[in-house]
Design a protein around this nucleic acid. Structure first.
Lengths: 213, 213
DNA sequence: GATGCGTCTTGACCCAAGTCAACTGATTGG
DNA sequence: CCAATCAGTTGACTTGGGTCAAGACGCATC
């Protein structure tokens, strides 16, 4: 699509160091970001400090939505991160100019919605083991689409992040990973895991549950 | 918007009786629906029969998304339901013809996404009591926007539906409602509840948590 | 107005995950 | 190199919600 060329001209490259907040929930969304490098944690907070991690964004993902006046979640960098920053007005004008791009945005939103709904299914119905196993497989699959295949899956996020993503406590995540290692379906390595026979443990009554990739 | 006139011409009215399935997950989405009357339960199933209710649709809501080839959830009628059915191709053509409509669709998708994310926050972090209380308030608020205000909130869905929506078991929903009645913040009536001081119980460390309306 | 079925409630018991706490291992900075 | 700090693991104990089972209630249909 020729429009994508032009889109690049609107972007400013920006960088964030590990742990820095890129934007906060409810702030006016005058800029929209596209993630170029690194991993970003998207989350919501409750007034009492409880946190729900909504997703871990990877290169290629959008952070924030055009047409939304305010961010409806917060985002911060896991490790060093580089982003394309767009002015919301520029982007809105640009999007409106092309039905092709419009459609792309809609499809992106639909994909996001679908992922959120799969996440709902998991949060509402999964045991700790199912949640952790699903998370690992789904994370591995997402990584596989943007980096050359590797047996050992990096986990740049903290246990606490995984816990808040899955609606568990970090001790439970730790214990569950240990249990999966016991079962010989993963091996825990520094800042990552080595997946071996994990697909098997996702079998639910005969059929494999396959969520978003 | 004048376009909405024209949209009506594309619609066929269809009806479903209580409990009937309107469409099923993964089926080819050659039609899209707009809900005119009644309540619809949107849900996903796991292979072993566990169910996650994603939402209860009310009049004015869309079921199914344009541009999505397949439904990514199932829908069935709670009570009698009447819908506008659109052919997906008609609707796609129509949408593409107008940036105004495009924008409307994007905004709808964003709102849906936002609701799903609030639901994630609740499923991941809420106690049974918080979940049920939040559900009642949020349901009351949604109803208030389409029907004249009424103290007693109708609950046309079954306890099992609420349970599957909140990631609880139906016994827990029942018990939790009973507990809220004990606390005098609700009164349980046939097929509904009477809300009195429920807002108070949603206070979390001093500030009220206000989710999607 | 009896019968039967589906929904809802309630009770007793149990277990997966949460809590609290101690400890180990990695990383950073002086 | 050694503190100091933070991330992660592991253990002992508690508990909220799940499970199983009995009963009550509502509401159709005959």
């Amino acid at each position: 699509m020729p429009e994508l060329r032009e889109l690049q001209r609107l972007a400013t490259q920006v960088y964030f160091r590990s742990g820095k907040t890129i934007f906060s929930e409810r702030a006016v969304a005058d800029t929209v970001f596209g993630l170029s490098q690194g991993v970003v944690r998207l989350y919501k907070l409750l007034p009492d400090g409880r946190r729900q991690v909504l997703a871990f964004a990877l290169p290629g993902d959008f952070l924030g939505m055009p047409f939304a006046e305010r961010y409806n979640f917060s985002a911060d960098a896991i490790g060093e991160v580089s982003l394309c920053r767009y002015s919301r007005d520029d982007l809105t004008r640009f999007i409106q100019s092309s039905p092709n791009i419009m459609r792309l945005i809609i499809e992106f939103a639909i994909r996001e919605l679908d992922m959120a709904q799969d996440q709902l299914l998991l949060l509402g119905n999964g045991s700790a083991e199912e949640k952790v196993a699903m998370f690992l497989v789904s994370w591995r699959n997402r990584l596989a689409r943007i980096t050359p295949f590797s047996e050992t899956v990096p986990l740049p996020m903290r246990r606490q992040d995984i816990a808040d993503f899955l609606g568990l406590k970090l001790e439970t995540v730790s214990r569950t990973l240990a249990k999966l290692e016991q079962k010989n379906v993963i091996r825990i390595v520094p800042k990552g895991v080595f997946l071996t026979g994990l697909e098997h443990t996702l079998m639910v009554t005969g059929r494999t549950y396959q969520p978003q990739i």
